[in-house]
Amino acid sequence: MTKDLKKNIMYQYLMLLVIAATAGHQGWRTLFNNLAVDEVGINGFQVGVIQSVREIPGFLALLVVYLLLVIKEHRLSAISVLFVGLGVALTGFFPSFYGLIFTTLIMSVGFHYFETTNKSLTLQYFSIEKSPFVFAKQKSWTAIANISMGAFIYGISHVLSLQSSFILIGLAVFAMGVWALFWKPTDKNIIPQNKGMVLRKKYWLFYVLNFLSGARRQIFVVFAVFMLVEKYNYSVSDIAILFVVNNIITYFISPYIARGINRFGERKMLSAEYFFLIFVFMGYAYIENGLLVAGLYVIDHVFFGFSMGINTYFQKTGDQKDIAPSMAVGFGINHISAVVIPVIGGFLWMINPQIPFLAGAILSIVSLGFVQLIRTNKLK
Rank of each mutant, 00 (worst) to 15 (best):
Q138V: 04
K139P: 00
S140V: 07
S140N: 05
W141A: 04
W141I: 06
I144M: 05
I144P: 00
I144E: 01
N146H: 07
S148Y: 01
S148R: 00
S148H: 01
G150L: 11
A151P: 07
I153W: 01
I153Y: 02
Y154C: 11
G155I: 11
G155N: 14
G155R: 09
I156C: 08
H158M: 06
V159M: 13
V159G: 09
V159Q: 09
L162A: 04
L162Q: 05
S164L: 12
S164M: 14
S164V: 11
F166V: 08
F166E: 08
I167Q: 09
G170R: 03
L171G: 05
L171E: 01
A172Q: 07
A172M: 12
M176A: 12
M176I: 05
M176S: 09
G177D: 03
G177W: 12
V178F: 10
L181Q: 13
L181A: 11
K184P: 04
P185W: 06
T186I: 00
D187S: 09
D187K: 13
D187R: 12
D187L: 06
D187P: 10
K188E: 15
I190G: 09
I190E: 12
I191A: 14
P192E: 14
Q193D: 09
Q193M: 05
K195N: 11
K195G: 08
M197L: 15
M197Y: 12
V198I: 14
V198R: 12
V198P: 04
R200Y: 00
K202S: 15
W204H: 11
W204K: 14
W204P: 07
L205G: 11
L205W: 02
F206D: 00
F206L: 01
Y207M: 09
N210A: 09
N210S: 10
F211Q: 07
L212W: 08
L212R: 14
S213K: 15
G214T: 14
R216T: 08
R216K: 15
R217L: 10
I219F: 05
I219P: 12
I219Y: 06
F220H: 12
V221K: 13
V221L: 11
V222H: 02
A224D: 06
A224M: 13
A224S: 15
V225A: 05
F226N: 07
F226S: 07
F226I: 03
M227C: 01
V229R: 03
E230L: 07
Y232S: 01
N233G: 05
N233I: 04
S235L: 09
V236K: 06
V236H: 02
V236A: 02
V236Q: 11
V236P: 08
D238W: 03
I239H: 00
I239D: 04
I239Y: 01
A240M: 07
L242Y: 03
F243H: 04
V244F: 08
V245D: 06
V245P: 00
N246S: 14
N247I: 01
N247K: 00
I248Q: 02
I249Y: 00
T250S: 09
T250Y: 01
F252G: 13
I253K: 02
I253G: 04
S254G: 01
S254D: 03
P255C: 10
Y256E: 10
I257R: 02
I257K: 05
I257P: 03
